Amino acid sequence: MLRNDVAMVEVPQSQRPGQTAIYRNPKSYHALDHRNSRNLYTLYDVFEHSVKKWPNNPFLGTCVNGAYQWQTFKQVAELRVGSGLMTLLEKNGIKKTTALGIYSINRPEWVITAEICNAYKMASVALYDTLGPDAAAYILNHSEIDAVVAAKVAIPNLLKVAHKVPKLKVIVSMDSLNDECSDITRQWAKDRNIILVDWNELEVLGRKYPKAHEPAGQEDIACICYTSGTTGDPKGALLSHK
């Protein structure tokens, strides 16, 4: 007898050596339920649905001095950073990338960059601090990345391996580059033949040259999730929108 008052139940005989059992919602105990009553088939569909249904609800928050400052669904949807990135690539003769790197800890710009990928049919590829420089270079090459959106502190790591990643042409800083130290970083990028801009510059460019969305389909790759590569080169799992 299945109980409906619990969050999930164990699927019998689903445990394997070295793995946990499979757990499912009691309503989908015998098989996964693929019915879709809202016609939401991609991550893009889900976000756009949320924007229409809850435009003024808080969506992304940043903790500042112990209090959260929120951006609503509508405010995030009205950002034009994605248009700016598409324009930047176009103006520099770079064919639109099929995968976009994200190199940062959790923050609103991380999620917004993932939504850019969903809106312009690109797969997101996360890079993280535990990666060594060789593993980072391997992932960038393996996923054929042209552009990376990164926290400012991560940019030196990218520039250090840039000579090993010939396809990398653009780095976008999530943080402002309007200081003396950033001038040095900009010159370093220029010496590596890499275009370096910040988030605000893309926003300005995107508002000047708006680009229509080119959303992915449900069978398209939403993200490539790489392992840390502790036992050899990192392995990339392909996750579709479906």
Rank of each mutant, 00 (worst) to 15 (best):
M1L: 08
L2D: 05
R3V: 13
N4D: 09
V6I: 15
A7T: 05
A7R: 01
M8K: 14
E10A: 05
Q13I: 06
S14M: 01
Q19G: 00
A21E: 00
Y23F: 15
S28W: 10
A31C: 02
A31V: 13
D33T: 09
H34Y: 10
R35V: 05
L40N: 00
T42A: 15
L43H: 07
V46Q: 07
F47H: 04
F47G: 13
E48C: 00
E48D: 04
S50L: 15
V51N: 06
K52T: 13
K52L: 13
K53D: 12
W54N: 14
P55S: 11
N56C: 10
F59Q: 02
C63E: 15
V64C: 06
G66C: 03
G66D: 10
A67Q: 12
W70R: 09
Q71W: 02
F73M: 04
A77H: 14
L79V: 01
R80D: 02
V81S: 01
L85S: 02
M86L: 08
L88E: 01
L89C: 15
E90M: 06
E90W: 10
I94V: 15
K95Q: 12
K96P: 15
A99W: 14
L100Y: 11
G101N: 08
I105W: 04
N106Y: 06
E109H: 04
E109N: 01
W110A: 09
V111N: 06
T113G: 06
E115N: 04
C117I: 08
N118D: 13
A119R: 12
Y120Q: 04
Y120H: 14
K121L: 12
A126P: 12
A126M: 03
A126L: 04
L127Y: 13
G132L: 08
G132K: 04
A135P: 07
A135M: 08
A137S: 14
Y138L: 10
Y138Q: 09
L140T: 13
L140R: 03
N141M: 05
S143C: 02
S143M: 11
D146M: 06
A147H: 07
V149C: 14
V149H: 00
A150M: 02
A151V: 02
K152M: 11
I155F: 02
N157T: 07
L159G: 08
A162R: 05
V165Y: 01
K167G: 11
V170Y: 02
I171K: 03
S173T: 05
M174D: 07
S176H: 07
D179S: 01
C181A: 15
T185W: 12
A189Y: 01
K190E: 14
D191R: 03
N193W: 05
I195R: 02
I195T: 07
L196T: 11
W199V: 14
E203H: 04
E203S: 10
R207T: 12
R207V: 05
Y209W: 04
H213N: 13
A216S: 14
E219L: 15
E219Y: 10
A222N: 14
Y226A: 07
Y226D: 14
S228W: 11
S228Y: 15
G229W: 10
T231D: 07
G232M: 12
G232P: 10
D233A: 11
D233Q: 14
K235R: 00
G236W: 09
L238F: 11
K242T: 03
